[in-house]
Simulated scan of single mutants.
Amino acid sequence: MERGSFVLGHQLTSDQLDARILNYPTITVPERKHTLNTTPVGIDRAILFDDGAYNNRDIQLIIGFEGKQSNSNIQKFLSALDTGKYIDFQMYSDPDYTYQVIRQSTGTIARPTYSDSYRELTITLSSAPYRYVEPAQTATITTNQSTLVNPTKYLAKPYIRIVGDGAITLTVNGVDYKFTNVTGSIELDSAMQNVWRINGGVMVNENAKMAIGPFPTLKPDNNTVKVSTGTATIEPRWRTL
């Protein structure tokens, strides 16, 4: 990516907005979630409970918008962020990763006295703690065992689509995930803990067709995957801090 460039939501680019990131983005390291119990008597430290998760991180940006459409393009940028859900965001400063961002803070829009057609937006975005490896490689899985290599040191929570009918077992690292009465296809998102299928463009809840238990995850290094019948496509969502 060129210096100062960015992509928001895989669609809106800095070139389309005549915009560039002016600073080297300041990105905080996410805080680990811990709970400390300080009530026990007779011990020399608080009892630590690790929640196994992280708080969001902040990304501080200064973005310059050029041209007569600068005000309009700022509004396009803000509108793309204000959807009520996380939006993918890639920056020139970290081109091999995608951040998932939302806007929670206010921003400031400044106009230098020397230009009527230039604006600078200073804003802090809230980002989900993990950043995701880009580009995301999708793997096709069959009844023959395949190996997926997680290049990071963190557990991945994949999106999986299985095509087939009837009873299907997805095996990940020797653990069986069983599905019953599959009709054409079934999809699952380990991050969202949800199972569904698409029927005529409509999402149909299929959680009852997956045996109760944890959703599949992909550990660091090698992961073995296969299906008992049909095929599966896996978007592994490799992630790191």
Rank of each mutant, 00 (worst) to 15 (best):
E2I: 12
R3D: 05
G4Y: 05
V7H: 05
T13Q: 07
S14K: 03
S14P: 04
L17H: 01
D18C: 07
L22E: 15
L22T: 13
N23D: 12
N23R: 09
Y24M: 05
P25V: 04
T26C: 00
T26M: 03
I27T: 13
T28I: 00
T28F: 06
K33F: 11
L36N: 06
T38Q: 09
T39M: 10
P40A: 07
P40D: 06
V41M: 04
G42H: 07
R45Y: 15
I47N: 10
I47W: 10
I47A: 14
L48G: 11
L48E: 14
L48F: 10
D50A: 09
D50I: 09
D51G: 07
D51S: 12
D51W: 09
Y54T: 08
Y54F: 15
N56H: 10
R57W: 00
I59S: 01
Q60C: 06
I63G: 05
F65D: 01
F65P: 00
E66K: 10
K68F: 03
N71W: 11
N71M: 03
N71P: 04
N71H: 05
S72V: 09
L78A: 03
L78P: 03
D82P: 00
T83C: 00
Y86L: 00
Y86Q: 08
Q90L: 06
Q90T: 13
M91Q: 03
D96G: 11
Y97M: 09
Y97L: 02
T98W: 05
Y99C: 01
V101K: 04
V101R: 02
I102E: 10
R103C: 04
Q104T: 15
S105N: 12
T106K: 13
G107S: 09
I109N: 11
A110L: 08
A110Q: 15
P112L: 00
T113A: 12
S115P: 02
D116L: 01
S117H: 11
Y118D: 07
T124L: 00
L125F: 05
A128N: 08
A128P: 02
P129W: 07
P129I: 05
P129D: 02
Y130C: 00
Y130F: 06
P135D: 01
T138E: 12
A139V: 13
T140V: 14
T142D: 10
T142S: 14
V149C: 02
V149W: 14
V149E: 11
N150C: 01
T152H: 06
K153D: 15
K153M: 09
K157G: 02
K157Q: 12
P158T: 08
P158K: 01
Y159K: 13
I162A: 00
V163C: 00
D165G: 01
G166W: 06
A167Q: 04
T169A: 12
L170V: 09
L170T: 02
V172A: 04
N173E: 07
V175H: 12
D176T: 08
F179C: 06
T180F: 09
T180Q: 11
T183I: 12
S185G: 10
S185P: 10
E187C: 11
E187S: 13
S190Q: 03
S190H: 08
M192P: 04
I198K: 04
G201E: 10
G201V: 09
V202W: 08
M203C: 02
M203S: 12
M203E: 14
P214I: 12
F215T: 07
K219P: 13
K219F: 14
K226H: 15
S228R: 01
T229C: 01
E235V: 13
P236V: 04
T240A: 01
L241K: 13
